[in-house]
Amino acid sequence: MQTPNVSVVTEFQLLGFQTLQEWQTLFFTIFLVIYLLTLTGNIVIIAVVSQDRRLHFPMYMFLQHLSFLEIWYTSTIVPLLLANLTSWGRAISFSACMAQLYFFVFLGATECFLLAMMAFDRYLAICSPLHYPFLMSPDTCRHLVALCWLTGVGTGFLPSMMISQLDFCGPNQINHFFCDLPPLMQLSCSSAHVTEMAIFVLSVAVLCVCFLLTLVSYVFIMSSILRIPSASGLRKTFSTCGSHLAVVTIYYGTMISMYVHPSAHLSPEINKIISVFYTVVTPLMNPVIYSLRNKDFKEAVRKAIRRQRGHCGVGVRGQVFIR
């Protein structure tokens, strides 16, 4: 007798932070503030880089794409998280869950590729300044950015497709605040061994390789910085690169601890805490660290503020004159 390979479960229930009911209001406030700051900060970066011609260089093009990505990356997760915290909605349909999973993997992988490219860009700028204009021309930068996005699009297909082919015929409660890979595989009533191993290999290929390339780039950058004769220049550059590396390490470290462990299973509560870092915290930290510690970008922001104040002043003076 032929058994139809059809998923019985038509929707999932996201349990979220149900074990911390007394903290729901506090969590909602914190996550909402972080989300609004993330959107505002990334939109400001995109606008400033677009308007200031002095920032039309590969470094800021990468930063602009990173900000654009962070807006969509955090928006894939946080709005549903906020809705769950207020009990406005905990149910998510099977198709919507698979769509969220796809965009999460696609945007997360693209961010890994972009961070690796940004580290490589800084390596060329600091370690090969004379060759940098030729090695990282605007056309080369655009091609690299397009490669990051296209590779990310392709990376998202395999996990979401394999998860969607699993059978879900038992409990439909996901002990998480979004449709993530580990809790979904644990809910499946069919064997998920092949899926688990495929996701493990993909995670190693994307996370570990990108992190290794980023780390190697910063090792060469640090070794070059140590040869700077000026103590103030050494301290400033080392501080900037150190903050970049710290944020990258937090992002990759939390992601690797979640997905590069095919046989180990952390407790659901620890998984949620770890997930908060790479879905809520780093989308805010990345643009802040990469932009506000940059002198040219801060000057461009001041210039934009002065220009905006000047426009407002002209409008006010015009009204007074007419009266």
Rank of each mutant, 00 (worst) to 15 (best):
S137F: 03
F211G: 04
F168G: 01
S232K: 11
G233R: 12
T195M: 07
G242Q: 12
V145D: 04
G154F: 10
I126H: 06
G242D: 10
S190M: 08
I163K: 00
L158G: 01
P159Y: 00
S128L: 14
M197H: 05
C148E: 04
L184F: 10
L158C: 06
L213N: 04
H143G: 05
G170C: 14
W149R: 08
V219C: 06
H143R: 11
V204M: 14
P138Y: 00
G233A: 14
S191N: 15
S224Q: 07
G170E: 14
F178V: 05
C127A: 13
L234T: 08
V204S: 05
L166K: 01
V153T: 07
G152N: 03
I126E: 07
L144I: 13
L130P: 00
L147I: 09
N175W: 09
V201C: 09
L213W: 11
G242L: 13
Y251C: 05
F134T: 10
A205M: 14
S217Y: 02
M161A: 14
Q186W: 00
G156A: 10
A125E: 06
N175Y: 07
C210N: 12
Y251A: 06
R227Y: 00
C208A: 12
G253Q: 02
F200V: 04
S160D: 08
E196C: 12
S164A: 15
L150G: 06
G253K: 01
P229W: 03
A246E: 03
V153F: 14
I225W: 08
L135R: 04
